[in-house]
C-alpha cells in the first residue's frame, strides 16, 4: 500500500472515481479460442486489465520425476509483462509476488479439474498480464478457467474470481489499481459458482468481521455477471 501522502479522494458523492457504485464491476469482455497453438486459450479485458491465458496439455509431465502416476499435475505460470504497468518498467520472469500468485492459482484449478483422467501427465496454465490495472490475479483466474474449458479439460465447474475491498467505511467490489494503492483492504477471491465454495481467499489491510461478510457476499453476487461473460465467450466460439 502506498504512502498516505497525496491520497486522492476515492469516493465522491457516493460514487467511485471511475463513476462506479460500490458493488459495480468494471466492464468485462472475454474472447475464447484466440491462440492457435494452445489447446485452449482466452483473452480478457476487464477495466484496463488486458490478460491472455493459454492451456497446454494434458501432456507428458517433464521432468519425468515430477509426474504423479495416479493423476495429472497442474502447473501454473502467472507473469506480468514489463510494459504492463502505467508508470514503471517491470522485470520479466517470476518474482516473489508472481511465484505466490502462481501457486494459489494452481491450487484453485487443482480443485476443479478431473485430475484422475490423465495420470502421469501435466496440464500447463500460462497467464500473461499484458496490461495491469488492479485485480490481475482475479482477471488471470477468470481467463484461465475459460482457456481450460476451451481446451476440453473436464472440470467440476467454471471458476471465476474478483476482489472486494474497503475504502473508508465502504465495502467495494472489483478494486482497480488506484483504489488498490490507497484502499484500506483488498480481498481477492475465487469461487466455484455451482456450490459457492471459496477456492482462493487472500486479504490484506483491515476488515471487521461484518465488513468481511459483506465483501464475501458482494463477490458471490458478482459471480452471476462474470460467469455469464465466461460462458458466453465459450459458446460464441461455435456461433461464428
Amino acid at each position: 500500500m502506498a504512502s498516505s501522502l497525496n491520497k486522492p479522494e476515492l469516493i465522491v458523492n457516493g460514487k467511485r472515481l471511475d463513476g462506479r457504485d460500490f458493488g459495480e464491476l468494471r466492464p468485462l469482455k472475454i474472447e475464447a479460442n484466440v491462440l492457435k497453438n494452445a489447446q485452449g486459450s482466452a483473452y480478457l479485458e476487464w477495466g484496463n486489465n488486458r490478460v491472455l491465458a493459454a492451456v497446454y496439455g494434458p501432456r507428458e509431465a517433464t521432468p519425468r520425476h515430477t509426474a504423479d502416476s495416479t493423476k495429472a499435475i497442474v502447473k501454473c505460470r502467472y507473469s506480468m509483462a514489463p510494459f504492463s504497468g502505467l508508470a514503471d518498467h517491470g522485470r520479466t520472469g517470476p518474482n516473489r509476488r508472481a511465484t505466490e500468485i502462481s501457486k494459489v492459482t494452481k491450487e484453485v484449478f487443482e480443485n476443479v479439474i478431473f485430475l484422475n483422467e490423465f495420470p502421469g501427465s501435466e496440464i500447463d496454465i500460462f497467464i500473461e498480464i499484458l496490461q495491469s490495472d488492479g485485480g490481475t490475479r482475479a482477471a488471470g483466474i477468470t481467463a484461465a478457467a475459460v482457456a481450460l474449458a476451451n481446451a476440453g479439460i473436464k472440470m467440476k465447474d467454471l471458476v471465476y474470481a474478483v476482489s472486494a475491498g474497503r475504502i473508508g467505511e465502504h465495502v467495494v467490489l472489483d478494486v482497480n489499481m488506484i483504489e488498490d494503492n490507497y484502499s484500506d483492504a483488498d480481498m481477492p477471491m475465487a469461487i466455484s459458482p455451482k456450490s459457492g465454495e471459496i477456492l482462493l481467499l487472500q486479504m490484506d489491510g483491515g476488515l471487521t468481521k461484518e465488513q468481511l461478510r459483506k465483501g464475501m457476499e458482494m463477490v458471490i453476487e458478482a459471480g452471476k455477471t462474470i460467469s455469464k461473460a465466461q460462458r458466453d465467450a465459450l459458446k460464441d466460439i461455435y456461433k461464428k
Partner: peptide, 8 residues
C-alpha cells in the same frame, strides 16, 4: 443447439 459449459 444448446451449448453447455463446465458447471452448467
Amino acid at each position: 443447439r444448446q451449448f453447455v459449459t463446465p458447471g452448467e
